[in-house]
């Protein structure tokens, strides 16, 4: 068997291009998360402004709207915190060559995609449910 003096026991290790790509991904993911946090704040302000302009007419809509906004904010916050942590850990890993931070960062990225995937499944289930409801109510009316 031929021995290659340049080969290492870790053939599948990140090179300079990998690190550069990871660094750019971390930077943009960080900006994405920060924009997400600002977006959450703007959504809350926008909701409060709408409720104020509706005044006493808000009534029953306020409760439904509040629950809706609370759910959206919680999901968005969880996703953006995960993305922010992923980005900052990957950045630390590249800057300090820290394997521990690298593991945490990639795990957080995987969690981010996992949570986004689970939300996609939930949205799909809700859409199918409403579609079935629409079809059934259409049949009930004789369409």
């Amino acid at each position: 068997m031929e021995n290659n003096p340049n080969s290492s026991i870790f053939n599948f290790g990140p090179d300079e291009e990998t690190k550069s790509n990871l660094s750019v991904i971390a930077r943009w993911a960080n900006i994405n998360a920060i924009v997400g946090f600002i977006g959450i704040g703007v959504t809350i302000i926008s909701f409060i402004a709408t409720m104020n302009s509706l005044g006493r007419y808000a009534g029953s809509f306020a409760g439904f709207g509040m629950a809706n906004i609370a759910l959206s904010v919680a999901i968005s916050l969880a996703l953006n915190i995960t993305l922010f942590m992923a980005a900052s850990n990957v950045k630390k890993a590249i800057d300090n060559s820290s394997q521990a931070h690298f593991e945490i960062g990639i795990t957080k990225f995987a969690t981010y995609f996992k949570v986004a995937g689970i939300i996609t499944i939930i949205v799909l289930v809700v859409l199918v449910f409403f579609l079935m409801l629409g079809i059934l109510s259409g049949r009930g009316r004789g369409f």
Partner: peptide, 23 residues
């Protein structure tokens, strides 16, 4: 040692690939 793509990192990359494909 530099960063390594072994063990947990590989597993998490595989997880990210599965979920991103689904999305």
């Amino acid at each position: 040692m530099d960063l390594q793509l072994e063990g947990e990192v590989r597993h998490q990359f595989a997880n990210a690939a599965i979920w991103s494909k689904f999305i």
